[in-house]
């Protein structure tokens, strides 16, 4: 009787593992299909990004930016605008506190 149970368990296990392997295989195939799609999307995105980078380089051509800067009246940096860090004041100059303004209501109490 004991052996029959063992055989039965083995058979059930074999069957289960068969079903599991079968379903796993199809699951993996499905995942591979998804992966393939992702890879192809990545390639397509890389291709588009490459094209966009070239477009960006073309659109941000300094020659064109100079023309656009003129339109928004941007001015180039002047020499006087640049100083060495040592030329800066050591501590920020404190802003003097504002004198409290006299209010008529203050005398009410």
């Amino acid at each position: 009787m004991k052996q029959r149970y063992v055989n039965l368990i083995c058979f059930v296990l074999a069957l289960l593992s068969g079903i599991l392997t079968f379903s796993l295989k199809y699951h993996v195939l499905d995942k591979e299909k998804q992966l393939k799609k992702i890879y192809s999307d990545i390639t397509q995105n890389q291709k588009e990004m490459h094209g966009l980078k070239t477009d960006w380089a073309s659109l941000t051509n300094p020659e064109d930016l100079r023309i656009q800067a003129k339109q928004i009246r941007a001015k180039p940096i002047r020499a006087e605008q640049i100083i060495h860090i040592h030329q800066l004041a050591e501590k920020p100059v404190p802003i003097p506190p504002k004198k409290p303004e006299f209010k008529e209501d203050d005398n009410d109490f």
Binding site: L35, S40, I42, T43, Q44, Q46, K47, H50
Partner: peptide
Amino acid sequence: YTRPMGSSF
């Protein structure tokens, strides 16, 4: 360990 899926761009 995945199988190579086509080459990148």
